[in-house]
Amino acid sequence: MKNMALHIMDIVQNSIRAQAGLIQITIEETDPGLASVNITDDGSGMTEEVLAKVTDPFYTSRTTRRVGLGIPLFRQSAEQAGGNFSVNSTQGSGTVVNATFYKHHPDMVPWGDIPGVIILMVAANPTTDFVYLHRTPKGEYLFDTREIKEQLDGVPINEHEVRRFLRNMLAENLTAIGAAGVLRMKTIKDKANNEPNN
């Protein structure tokens, strides 16, 4: 995977396949340079036997191919940046994936476009709820699609205008707390300004 945002998107696909109704993504950055990424879902979960095999790249629950690389690759990215990785799961109640990193480790993966990925997942899965919490030493920002849907009062969350608004709202709020992964802020803004029917 090229960056953290794509890792998160990949792990979230597992939650979606496990029919999660609520997916919580938490990124925490603490001062001495530690970062943690936590993805918790309320999907179908896994049995102990499956859980034991889940970081094995030659294990997958799919029938379309014989390898499953999402979790092994995420684990590799965490461990190469001096961090830890864990997966916990209870059948019937959900799965928790947790990864920690040293942000300034030379082998730390780049953060990528976190707001873009969050909004893409929200737009592509309008019936699934997402909670995204980003905490830095400067503050925290909570993005909750349940709150957003309440405000929208029936207007689809994946409507173009709404999607564009949410992408900008998320990027602006994350920039305000100095969060990692919003390097493309300027590009997103320029793009939005250039769109003809804005």
């Binding site: 957003i148 405000q151 009062d153 207007v155 409507e159 608004f165 949410l166 709202m169 602006e172």
Partner: peptide, 16 residues
């Protein structure tokens, strides 16, 4: 000004 949920609420009816 940073966008908030209130701004979203304001644009809702137009989108609808």
């Amino acid at each position: 000004k940073i966008k908030t949920l209130a701004d979203l609420r304001n644009m809702r009816d137009e989108v609808r």
